[in-house]
């Protein structure tokens, strides 16, 4: 009895030691992954949306759906367009019928309109993004290029990130049952192609570029224009800059 217990304990301790040793050798994965090496040789993507140029054609939302196989139901969008109409009495009318894909019909009579404009929305690819912070399993992350991505194989579909995003840019994919969002067409960027929404924008209202490169068109635009991010008070480190943004935009 006594000897068999000793034998058992001995083998248990040996096993434990071997395992710890093995894991230690496997590049110390026992510990936290706090360090996040940022590769300076890679671009660091930012986005500009020029509201004064948007004509609300909805091509961006349509292209995004076909490029990324986003479900066609009118409540799943990775990017969409909203129309804001400020009436003369100060009230604001905000519409986004099918994300703008079918175009817009002005429903406020023109004599009541103080001003009206379109606001395309998409993921802000925040540098300090709330959705990454709440993910309990590390299934959503900031890529070395500054693109916020979802690991579909690792996501458990808990919806924390959907709630955490202050811009409403995430949804649960109805078939895959995992979080889904704008990837800035990461697969296209890797092939030196523009994101689908920017490829099809007829007026060039959307732009993307490398924030690290001080000579890029994006940085030049930011230099020459007064841009603003959405909800700056939340300090999300948003990298989506709006030109000609009105205070009515939420």
């Amino acid at each position: 009895m006594n000897s068999s217990r000793r034998k058992f304990l001995k083998s248990a301790v040996t096993l434990a030691g071997a395992t710890i040793g093995y894991t230690w050798l496997k590049s110390s994965q026992v510990f936290l992954y706090a360090a996040e090496p940022k590769d300076e040789s890679l671009p660091w993507y930012g986005i500009v949306i020029d509201i004064s140029k948007c004509i609300g054609c909805g091509n961006c939302a349509k292209a995004c759906k076909s490029e990324n196989d986003v479900p066609v139901e009118p409540f799943f969008f990775r990017t969409w367009v909203e129309q804001y109409t400020v009436r003369n009495d100060g009230t604001v009318d905000i519409v986004s019928p099918n994300g703008g894909i079918d175009g817009f019909q002005q429903r406020v009579p023109s004599e009541d309109i103080f001003k009206s404009f379109f606001v395309p929305k998409m993921c802000n690819h925040c540098a300090k993004s709330p959705c990454i912070q709440v993910c309990p399993v590390g299934a959503t992350y900031d890529s070395p290029e500054g693109v916020v991505l979802v690991d579909e194989k690792y996501c458990i579909g808990c919806r924390y990130c959907v709630q955490a995003c202050p811009y409403g840019c995430r949804f649960i994919h109805p078939v895959k049952k995992v979080a889904n969002k704008c990837t800035l067409c990461y697969h296209r960027l890797k092939k030196d192609l523009a994101p689908a929404c920017m490829e099809v924008c007829p007026t060039g209202a959307r732009m993307y570029g490398n924030l690290r490169d001080k000579n890029s068109d994006l940085v030049k635009f930011l230099k020459e224009h007064t841009t603003q991010v959405l909800r700056p008070n939340l300090n999300t480190g948003s990298k989506l800059y709006y030109n000609a943004l009105s205070s009515e935009v939420k």
């Binding site: 590390g138 992350y141 991505l149 990461y186």
Partner: peptide
Amino acid sequence: GHYRGASLIDNAQNEIHY
């Protein structure tokens, strides 16, 4: 970082339509 590195490749391998 705190994520699966291979997921970057997964995301980059999506098919292009445009």
